[in-house]
């Protein structure tokens, strides 16, 4: 029994039930297939496939259990991404982006300060001159505005 796959299968089935209930809010439609028709059909197939998968799973060996190799780095990376999103508008793109890039490279153990800083600065400058000035991409200026 592969435990990881089982968890995913169960999650799929739970989500399917939730979505199926949601389809009862869809309006009536005078015609062969209404707005709920295709989603319901798909949900049925999805549940069936996951049940088959669970059935097949019985006889499988869990030889390579799924595990996250360095969970703290994924958590730290996720936190960094959320922080970036949260500060995107208030601090402005051109302030948060180089900081994000530097932090991300640091997190991934790039220990060459010259390289880290030049990558972050060059990327930000290219975005500023090419995408912001030339292509007029309306990036939030935040503090710099």
């Amino acid at each position: 029994m592969k435990k990881g796959t089982l968890v995913i299968n169960v999650l799929f089935i739970v989500a399917s039930v939730f979505l199926f209930i949601e389809t009862f809010k869809f309006p009536y439609f005078k015609g062969p297939v209404g707005p709920a028709g295709m989603p319901r059909l798909l949900i049925f197939i999805l549940v069936a496939l996951n049940l088959i998968s669970i059935w097949q799973n019985r006889s499988l060996k869990d030889d390579k259990p799924v595990k996250i190799e360095s969970p703290w780095r994924i958590i730290a990376g996720t936190a960094l991404i959320l922080l970036y999103l949260a500060l995107f508008n208030s601090l402005g793109y051109f302030v948060v982006t180089p900081l994000f890039l530097i932090a991300m490279m640091f997190l991934m153990q790039v220990r060459r300060p010259v390289m880290v800083i030049s990558v972050a600065v060059i990327f930000t400058l290219v975005v500023y001159f090419f995408f912001y000035k030339e292509l007029m991409l309306p990036l939030p200026l935040g503090l710099l505005g």
């Binding site: 970036y84 982006t97 890039l101 490279m105 991934m108 790039v110 972050a120």
Partner: peptide
């Protein structure tokens, strides 16, 4: 090029 630099750049381009 270190994988960390590449990964940071992927995030950078993806956000943009």
């Amino acid at each position: 090029l270190p994988i960390g630099v590449l990964t940071a750049l992927i995030f950078g381009f993806a956000f943009l």
